[in-house]
Write a protein that binds this DNA or RNA. Structure first.
Lengths: 238, 238
DNA sequence: GGGTCTAAGATTGTATACAATACTGTGCGC
DNA sequence: GCGCACAGTATTGTATACAATCTTAGACCC
C-alpha cells in the first residue's frame, strides 16, 4: 500500500509514546483544516478526548507549538495558530527560497521507486478530490512537497520545508480566495515528469511557478487581518 | 548598553517563566562549548542545580530538543546532541542556501542603528578573544550571523538561521581543526562594511565565502565519527 | 445604560507521588 | 576467567494534587 498515509506521516519522531498519537491527530486535523486557526485547545478537554492525563497533553501541545501550528499563551492556554498576513508572505518567501533549489537536487537523486511513490501520491490526491474530501486533498498536496524534499536527501532542509508546509495549511485556511480553485494536479504532474526525466533546471522552474501560483491564489490584503487580542498587546511586560 | 547579551538572546520567547531561565542557561553553555556533545543531562541533577522541579526541567529539555541542541532518548534521558558528519555538512549546505541571500536583503534594509549594533557586536567578539574567553567569542560570532538575519527582517528565515547557528556550535565543538585559527574578525568587518554601503551583491558574496571558510576549517572526514550507542540501533522496533 | 469592582469559577503552572523502564553489580554455572 | 541471569538501584514516564492566574458574571455606583 504505497499511498497509505498513517498518522505518523506528519510528525518527526522526536517523541514516541502516548503524546505522539496526540500530536499526530492534532497535526492531521490542522492540516486538513478541520481545526481552524484561533481554536482553543483546552488541556482538560484534550485529555478527556484522548484518555490521557494533562501531562501528556501538555507535552503534545508544546511539540505543536514548536512546529508553529499552535500558539501557547502563558496562563491562557493553547490556540491553533493564526498566521498574520506578514507571516504568510514570509512563509512563501522562505518556500520560494528553499523549494525550487530542493526540487533541482531531487531531480538529480531521482529513483524509479521515488517516482512511483510520487505518482501514487498524486493519485491519492486525485481520489480525495473525487471523493469530495477537500481537507484530505489539501493535506496530501502539502505532503507532496515534503516527499520531494525528502528525495533530495537533505534532512535539515526537508525539516524546514515540512514546517513551512505545515504553516501553509493554516495560511490557506485563513486566506484562500473563495473563487480560485485548488487545481494543483497539473502542476504536480508536470513536476513529477521533470523529476523523472532528471531535468533539474525544469523542476526548479516548475516549482518556482507552482509556489507563485499558490501565493497568488491567496488574498493577502491587510484588510482580512485575523482578530487580535488586545490583551496580548496591553499586557504589561513580564 | 548595545552589546549587553542577556541570557534571553538565544531563545525565542515561546515559553516564559522558570523554564526559560533553564533553556537560556543551557543554551548558552552549549553555545560556548562548555557542555560538550554527548553530555548527559539528568533531570534530577538539573532540578537540583536550578532549584526547580523535574516538571520544568522536562519542559526546558523538550524545548532544547526542538532546537536540536539536545537529543531525547526515550527512557534513557537527555543528551547534548552529537551531529554526525553528514548532519554537519547538511547544516552548512543549508546555511549556504539561506544566509548569503539573507545578507543581501539585510544590505537593502540597513539602518545606521543596525550598523552600529553590528559593530558593537564585533567589538565584543574582539574583547572576548583578547580576554581569552574563547567560548564567549564563539557564541558571539555565531550570534553575529543571527543579528544580520534579523536585520533582513524575515522572521521565519531568521528562525531557521538561528537553529542552524546553534547546531553549528555543536559541530564546531566536534569537528574544529586544531591548527586552524578562528579568525573571523576580518570577514565580519568586511561584511559590516558591505552592509553599511548597502552593497547587497557584495554582502552576498562575502557571506558565501565566509561560510565556506568556516566549513573548510572543519575536519569532516568520516573517521572522526562520534561514538554511536549500539543500543540505539539494536533495539527492537517499538 | 455604561462602567468598574469584586468574587466565584474555570484553566493553566508547578510540585510531588507512583509506575515503568533502563542501568549496574553480584552470584552462579561452566 | 568468562558469560549469563537476576535482583537492586537509579532514572525517566505518567498521573494527580495543589497553587497561581485568568475569565466571567453580577452587584453596585455614577
Amino acid at each position: 500500500m504505497p499511498t497509505k498515509n498513517t498518522l505518523t506521516d506528519f510528525i518527526q519522531p522526536t517523541l514516541t509514546g502516548p503524546s505522539a498519537r496526540l500530536v499526530a491527530s492534532l497535526s492531521m486535523a490542522i492540516h486538513e483544516n478541520k481545526l481552524l486557526p484561533g481554536t482553543k485547545l483546552g488541556e482538560d478537554e484534550l485529555g478527556d478526548i484522548f484518555k490521557v492525563s494533562r501531562t501528556v497533553v501538555r507535552t503534545a501541545l508544546q511539540e505543536l507549538s514548536h512546529a508553529e501550528l499552535v500558539e501557547l499563551k502563558r496562563n491562557r492556554g493553547a490556540f491553533v495558530s493564526q498566521p498574520t498576513v506578514r507571516e504568510a508572505r514570509e512563509v512563501f518567501e522562505a518556500r520560494a527560497l528553499l523549494e525550487p533549489r530542493t526540487a533541482r537536487s531531487a531531480a538529480e537523486r531521482m529513483t524509479e521507486e521515488a517516482a512511483a511513490r510520487l505518482e501514487a501520491h498524486i493519485a491519492a490526491e486525485h481520489a480525495a478530490i473525487e471523493a469530495g474530501e477537500a481537507g484530505k486533498a489539501l493535506r496530501l498536496s502539502g505532503h507532496f512537497h515534503i516527499e520531494i524534499s525528502r528525495i533530495a536527501d537533505q534532512t535539515t532542509i526537508a525539516g524546514f520545508i515540512e514546517r513551512l508546509v505545515a504553516r501553509s495549511s493554516l495560511i490557506i485556511a485563513l486566506y484562500w480566495k473563495r473563487q480560485s480553485a485548488l487545481c494543483e494536479k497539473h502542476a504536480h504532474h508536470a513536476l513529477v515528469d521533470a523529476l523523472r526525466r532528471g531535468d533539474g533546471a525544469d523542476a526548479e522552474e516548475l516549482m518556482k511557478s507552482h509556489l507563485l501560483d499558490i501565493l497568488t491564489a491567496l488574498d493577502l490584503r491587510e484588510v482580512v487581518q485575523p482578530p487580535i487580542d488586545l490583551k496580548d498587546i496591553l499586557r504589561p511586560a513580564p
